[in-house]
């Protein structure tokens, strides 16, 4: 009986770095809530409110990033390229 538990202890050993704090757990009750009122005017909708604040246009962004230090990447790429060529 003691053997299997020992092995598993040993296995657990290397990964026993301080566990990163777990992300906040979704509450048990992750159900869509009842709204306190049954109906509301357009101005009180997310869309209506965002339009009024002028914040409607910046919700989604392109997934790539051009300004992210293109120079650096070029340099890095050249260095790695040497390694690739050296290894073949």
């Amino acid at each position: 009986m003691s053997n299997p538990s020992q092995t598993s202890d040993n296995k657990a050993e290397p990964t026993q770095q301080p566990q990163p704090q777990k992300p906040p757990v979704l509450e048990e009750d992750d159900e869509f809530e009842d709204f306190p009122v049954e109906d509301w005017p357009q101005e009180e909708t997310e869309q209506g409110a965002a339009a009024a604040n002028g914040t409607n246009n910046h919700l989604w962004e392109e997934s790539w990033d051009d300004d992210d230090a293109a120079e650096d990447f070029s340099k890095q790429l050249k260095e790695e390229l040497k390694k690739v060529e050296a290894s073949h």
């Binding site: 909708t45 989604w60 962004e61």
Partner: peptide, 30 residues
């Protein structure tokens, strides 16, 4: 159309809408 003050519901909607956007339009939440 969600009520702007219904934070929990908005969060639930977004938690699925963000992955959808990633797959369909390849965009990320700002």
């Amino acid at each position: 159309m969600c009520h702007q003050a219904a934070t929990k519901n908005k969060e639930l909607i977004l938690s699925y809408l963000v992955p959808c956007h990633l797959v369909t339009t390849h965009t990320l939440p700002s």
